[in-house]
Amino acid sequence: MRYTRLAAVALAVSLSGAAASQSALAEVTRGALMAKTCLACHGAAGTAPEATIPTLVHGFPRELMIQTMRGFRDGTRPSTVMGRHAKGYTDAEIELLADYFDGMR
């Protein structure tokens, strides 16, 4: 009987820790995770390191981001490296990025 109670308590503590971990992970969105790669070039500190690279961290309008990224991906917008980056994104992923950066305003 004593071992059963101990096992139940251990299981409850274990499950509460797992639930806390899950809720912490749920706070990080897929858009936020994908945006980390963008910030490597576009500037995590608030401004892009070079004047030719747009700053994204102060909010980039959602529709403009979607239009721009699709243009890079489809080759209708000229670029140096963005076309290669954008080719890897689906429409849904571009929208997640757009939501993330639009929400940073």
Rank of each mutant, 00 (worst) to 15 (best):
73 R>I: 01
74 D>H: 11
16 S>A: 13
23 S>K: 13
82 M>D: 06
98 A>Y: 01
96 L>T: 01
35 A>I: 14
80 T>D: 05
45 A>C: 10
71 G>W: 13
96 L>V: 04
7 A>S: 10
41 C>P: 11
16 S>Y: 02
90 T>S: 08
100 Y>R: 04
90 T>W: 00
52 T>P: 06
34 M>C: 07
63 E>T: 02
4 T>N: 04
16 S>L: 12
35 A>C: 13
22 Q>N: 14
17 G>K: 15
85 H>L: 14
56 L>V: 13
72 F>H: 09
31 G>R: 06
104 M>G: 06
37 T>Y: 05
18 A>E: 04
66 I>M: 05
3 Y>A: 08
26 A>C: 09
18 A>G: 05
39 L>Y: 12
20 A>Q: 01
58 H>E: 11
52 T>Q: 06
28 V>F: 12
24 A>P: 04
50 E>H: 14
61 P>I: 08
84 R>C: 03
18 A>Q: 10
56 L>A: 15
105 R>A: 14
69 M>R: 06
52 T>W: 10
70 R>T: 02
83 G>K: 02
44 A>T: 09
71 G>C: 03
23 S>N: 08
70 R>E: 03
53 I>L: 12
2 R>K: 14
97 L>Y: 02
15 L>V: 09
76 T>I: 10
85 H>D: 06
33 L>A: 07
24 A>Y: 09
25 L>M: 11
10 A>K: 04
51 A>E: 08
91 D>P: 00
83 G>D: 10
101 F>L: 04
17 G>M: 13
92 A>E: 02
3 Y>P: 03
63 E>C: 08
24 A>N: 09
43 G>F: 13
23 S>R: 12
24 A>R: 06
